[in-house]
Design a protein around this nucleic acid. Structure first.
Lengths: 187, 187
DNA sequence: AGCGTACTATACAGGTCAGTACATTAACGC
DNA sequence: GCGTTAATGTACTGACCTGTATAGTACGCT
């Protein structure tokens, strides 16, 4: 509705769509809802995005970029103890009341067929997160960084689901503690 | 299609629906598809189930019963080392190529609104699984069984997602190893 | 033979879905 | 002022959705 002088129309649409996808689910969010919420005409949406699928893919991309950027900022600010820094950053990310789950996990569940582009992109981003963890593990002197990265990512994804299902269940703190145990066992 | 002499019509419908829900996703499976696949008339489905939502809830219930029963059988057969037995049983469950994810997680993602009955049932079953793990932990002499149960359930749910996303990624073995570390740390 | 039950087939209601067509209005550079 | 461009509102297509209505068929029981 409000004239988008600062941010471009395209960004505005993507932002509104991302919000709806995250809170209501992707399949449950119709294009008409996005258009109404953004206060624009449907034609405008289809001028910037050729299909709903493209909108979904860019939504996943954006969330991945945000997560990745947040992690890198924290890692750059704290060169030693990379692994602990990363775990803390991710757990804070999950603890945020605005957190609605990792988008790539939700998208993977909503698009279970391997042929779907959304499914493929989701898998890519899950692996990218693991790779980032593995790099931190390697720089922290872990012997087998890929294995630890896999284990930590299981904890992280599990914690994200558990915290969503029951806010304040303690999943985050217990995940943090478990991560500490696994890390020291891998050193 | 085939005359259901052995199993009741109701069970037949629920079985077909469960299969479709698990493989294609719940929202992506229409009632017409279930009816066609089951080889029945739509009126017959609505004779036994008052709505699609009821069908979904019973699907979740059935999967939970299956998982629960499988675990109890294994636990009864091996009274000592309950925790290891349970982890092994769950990991084998996940490793099965037919495994399509924990239904309560998928349902939770597809129905994110807390008001939804499907959402509520999903959360219940997730907690029930944690309780089962906690009992095994307690019987194994763990000091704080609830905490360990939470940590193990994070690993389990994470492993289920990871294994689905990339079959044979090693998620299961690494989760098993991580579980061992956490268990021995908690004793 | 006659009745009731279980199931089927077809059609429909009322709604939402993604995506398109078209005609109109507002803003801005020249 | 004029032409271009961006965005709008409305209506539509064709498909799919859950759920219902109706009429007909197959079969077992008494």
């Amino acid at each position: 509705m409000a004239n988008q002088a600062t941010t471009s129309m395209r960004d505005h649409i993507l932002e509104v769509a991302s919000d709806l996808f995250a809170t209501r689910g992707i399949n449950a969010t119709g294009v008409d809802t996005i258009v109404a919420q953004a206060g624009i005409a449907k034609m405008t949406l289809y001028k910037y995005f050729k299909s709903k699928e493209q909108l979904i893919v860019e939504y996943l991309q954006k969330h991945d970029d945000n997560l990745r950027q947040g992690l890198f900022d924290r890692l750059d600010a704290n060169k030693d103890n990379q692994l602990n820094t990363l775990i803390n950053a991710v757990m804070e990310w999950i603890a945020d009341p605005e957190f609605k789950g990792f988008s790539f996990i939700n998208a993977f569940v909503e698009f279970p067929q391997a042929e779907s582009a959304v499914n493929q992109v989701s898998v890519e981003f899950a692996q990218a997160l693991r790779n980032t963890i593995a790099k931190s593990a390697a720089s922290s002197g872990v012997k087998k960084p890929e294995i630890l990265a896999m284990q930590l990512s299981l904890l992280i994804e599990g914690a994200a689901m558990a915290e969503q299902m029951q806010r304040g269940s303690g999943a985050i703190d217990h995940a943090r503690a478990a991560a500490k145990v696994l890390i020291s066992a891998a050193l």
